[in-house]
Nucleic acid binder design. Sequence first.
DNA 1: GTACATGCAAAATTTTTGCATGGGG
DNA 2: CCCCATGCAAAAATTTTGCATGTAC
Lengths: 144, 144
Amino acid sequence: MKTRRNTIQRRVLLEEIRKSRRHLTAAELYETVRDRLPRISLGTVYRNLEILTESGEVSRLGVAGHETRFDGVTERHPHYRCRVCGRIDDAEGTFSVQIEADIAAASGWELGAPSVEFEGVCPACRASTGARPEGTRPPGDTVH
Amino acid sequence: MKTRRNTIQRRVLLEEIRKSRRHLTAAELYETVRDRLPRISLGTVYRNLEILTESGEVSRLGVAGHETRFDGVTERHPHYRCRVCGRIDDAEGTFSVQIEADIAAASGWELGAPSVEFEGVCPACRASTGARPEGTRPPGDTVH
DNA sequence: GTACATGCAAAATTTTTGCATGGGG
DNA sequence: CCCCATGCAAAAATTTTGCATGTAC
C-alpha cells in the first residue's frame, strides 16, 4: 500500500464525514470543512475522498465517475457492477431479499423495490489488472 | 399521465435498449442508434431515456443528476435513496440478503459485498409532492 | 392546427487534472 | 530534503436546457 501523509485536510475531512449523520456529497463536505479550513480546495476534497474510499475508511454510495446505465428489463433483478470499468452484468443464480415488516413503518419513507448490486471486478478487468479486491467474500454468505 | 407522441426516435431507442444484452450508457446508446438515425441528438437520447424511465419501460441503474454521497460507516448496511431529492438515509430495521452458493461461481466475477438500496420518496418530498410512487410494495415482501 | 418532440448549441453540474508551491516524515 | 499533498485554475465528463423548427395526432 502506498504511503500516505497524515495531513490536516484529510484528518478534518474524515472527522466531518464521521461526525455527520447525513451522507454528504463532496460539495456539502467542502462547504462544511471550509469553516475550519477556509483555504481548502474542492480538488483536495475529491482527492481525499478517493484516498479514504480506497483505504476503506469511508464508503461511496452510488457510482461516482461512471455513467448511468439503462436496462430494458424492467423487472428488478440483481446486478454485478465492475468497480474498475463500470460494466454492469445481470447476476445469474438466485438470491432473495427478505424485508422485515418494520422497516418501512418506522421510517416515514414511501418505499419501492429494493435494488441489489454486487460490486466487484469483471472477468476482463480481473485478467488485465490481476487485482483481487479487498472485501471479497465467499458465496453463500449472509449480510445483515 | 402525460400524452406522449410515438416518435421514431423513442421507438428506436427502446428497441435498441431491449435488443442489447449489455446495459448501455446514454453515450453508447447514442452511438448505437446513430446507425439508424444519423441526425439524432444526445439531448433527445437523454430526454427519451427520462421519459422511458418515467413510464417504466426501462430502468436506470445508478443515479443520474445526483452527486455521489459518502458514508463514514464502512460496514455495509442498507440505505434508502430518495428518487426526488437524492437524499440518502440509513435503513433501519433488519433485513438480510441470502446469496446462493452458485451466484459467483458461474460468473467469472470477483465479487465483494452486496449493496442494498431501497429507492423511494423521503418524508419531506412526500409531503411536498404528495406523489405516491408506483412500484410501492408492502413491507415483508420478498424479492427474487 | 396545436402542442409535444426534435436538432443543435450553449450551459450547468459534477469530477478530474496540470502545475507550481508547501509541508509531513 | 524528498516527494506526496495542496491550492488554484483549467479542462474533462456527464447531463440538462433554451430556442426555433418539425411532426404526430
